[in-house]
Amino acid sequence: MRVNPNPLPDLIAALGQTQQQINTDLNQISSGTSVAVPSDDPASAAELVQNAAQTSSADQFLRSIGSIQGEVSNADSTLNSVITALQQAITLGVEGANGTLNDADRAAIATEVQGIQSQLVSLANLSYQGTYVFAGTANQTAPYVLNGSAVTYVGNAGTNSVTLGNHFTLQTNLPGSQLFSASGSDMFQSIQDLITSLQSGTGIAAAVGEVDTASSYIDSQRTFYGNAENQLNTQQTYLNSDTTQLAQQQNTLGAANLPAVITDLTSEETSRQATLEAVAATTQNNLFSYLKG
């Protein structure tokens, strides 16, 4: 049987193929990825797109948590100060209820409570990075206004919730209407009542009771921020581990398997060497060479 007398084109094609494989291997080694273009592995490329999106949103959730954490912990410690101030008011009220005091003494105490009142107003008007934390969603203006002796709420009852994970949304604020001005335990009303009673000398004990009710109510509402802080911390921990997992997945999907690639590269180089030698050998001789002499 007659055979192909010129194997060179085949050998050249083989050289081309090994060279291409060597280039692919070198690319993988230098870039560290096995999916440099979608056609390298279409399914993995598509999954890597989703993986990148998930990683990006996990990073964003972590940034958002960072933004919210400050506000929440500020709110929490502010409520702590509010309760301390209310306790102070209660102590003053109990002192004022003492029958041995005269009008002037009580007036002095009332003035002291007025000081606490304005302190409470400023606490309730807590502003964090330009927004008033206890104003509901009308948070671009101070929610509590001291008008003479009365304090009025000009915020609203709106709440904001922020998505901080897949299927995890957290309410980030309690409006003043729910916190300080709830009916039945209206903090500013109770303080105002205390001031009035101290000034008039009647109903001081009842007013102290009101302040006490308001104080325990606020203390109970404070758990909202405590919970929020806990949830933020938990979610932060979860997202950090999620990010690690996503990075691992990305690695599995798209990272070059270096030992395998390097082994392949070595074998391709050997194969290339062998092909080159074959080319050199086939081109050396034919019958004409022997007829020369």
Partner: peptide, 21 residues
Amino acid sequence: IGTEISNFFDSINQLSTSPAD
């Protein structure tokens, strides 16, 4: 496009934490 879609929605998530900023 995939990265820019992510960036767009990420920016909205950030907006969600400070809607008036």
